[in-house]
Structure formats: structure tokens, C-alpha cells
Amino acid sequence: MPLINFAAREINYKIVYYGCGLCGKTTNIQYIHKKVNPNARGKLVSIATEEERTLYFDFLPLTLGTVKGMKTRFHLYTVPGQSYYNASRRLVLQGVDGIVMVADSQITRLDENVESYLNLWDNLLDQGDDLTRLSFVIQLNKRDLTDIFSAEDLKELLNHTNSPVTEACALTGQGVFETLKTVCKQVIAKTGQAS
């Protein structure tokens, strides 16, 4: 549900990066902040602990420019991944238009990935939403590591919505913008369908 301001001729979309602790959500946002045209981005806001773990959220506004007379923005958020921060995750999900589920490809993180995915469904259902009505992209992160699941296995576990899947290594930036482009295009397309 984007915020559409006809008087100011602005549309703002909210995109949330979701996933278990240390899966690479903040790394995605930091890479985008580092690489994107400085004129197109605002300030990166991070509410993190002293150990640089996300406590509440990271926030990065991106300006797409003026499209058909409407200034179009994407507001990127991350959530804290650890299971005990669920109250914070629910707050960040309010008013979301698109979600990137960042999955940690390592075999040892299987349980955390599944728990986070189920938690996402729970939190969306609690606020009267579900993934089939939202834009949803799954990013398989850390593809550069050894001891990882195959993409097919992860898709079977996490992609019950038949959503787009990207492969990434957020540390080097591989797949980061492909993921962002995919989710941005989806939220635009969904808004068009809804109206």
C-alpha cells in the first residue's frame, strides 16, 4: 500500500529486507548505499547494537526520479533477524509493499531460514496481509561459500509462492542490484494491477 500524494505529486513504496540473524540484510543495504548514485539516495539510518547487529532497523531512501509527473521513491528497510526481536520486526512490516527474503545458503542455517520464513508469514497474517498479495523476492545469499544448499533445495523450502529467486553474495555485491531491481519492478507492477 504505497503512500500516494497527488498534491505533492509523490509516490513512496516501502520495501523490507527480511531473514534470519546474520543472513546479510544490512550488507545488502550497505552495498546499495555505497554503489548507487549519491543524488538518488538519502541518508542511511541504522539502529544497531554496539556489536553492529541490527537492533531495530536500517533505513535507506532511494529516489527513482519523476515518472509520469510523479516523484517516485523506494524506502528500503531491514529488520533485526534474531528471533527475540519479533516485536520490532512487526513494527517495521507495517505498510510494507515489497519484501526481500534473504536466505543464508549455508547448510548449518537451515532451521533459522525456515523459522524466519514462517515468522514472516505469521507477522503478515497478523496484520491482515499475506505474501501472495505483496511483491516478494527470495535472495539466496552467500553463494560463494562452501557447504551450502543447492538453489533447488532452498527454493523447495522457501518458495511456496512461486516468486522470483535471485542468487547473491552481498559482501561482494553480486546479485544485490538484481534483487533490488526485481522487487522494485514487482511493487510497481502490483500497484498498477491493484488500481
Binding site: G65, K68, K181, C184, K185, I188, S195
Partner: peptide, 19 residues
């Protein structure tokens, strides 16, 4: 009136340009 196919098409092109 505003958020139509035309808007979606132009936004799609703008996303390709930005990234």
C-alpha cells in the same frame, strides 16, 4: 488515472536506468 500501465512501463525503464 495516474497509476496505470503507462506509469508502470515508464517506472520500469527508470529502474533499469537507475541501476
Amino acid at each position: 488515472l495516474m497509476i496505470d500501465d503507462d506509469y508502470s512501463l515508464l517506472a520500469d525503464e527508470a529502474i533499469d536506468d537507475l541501476f
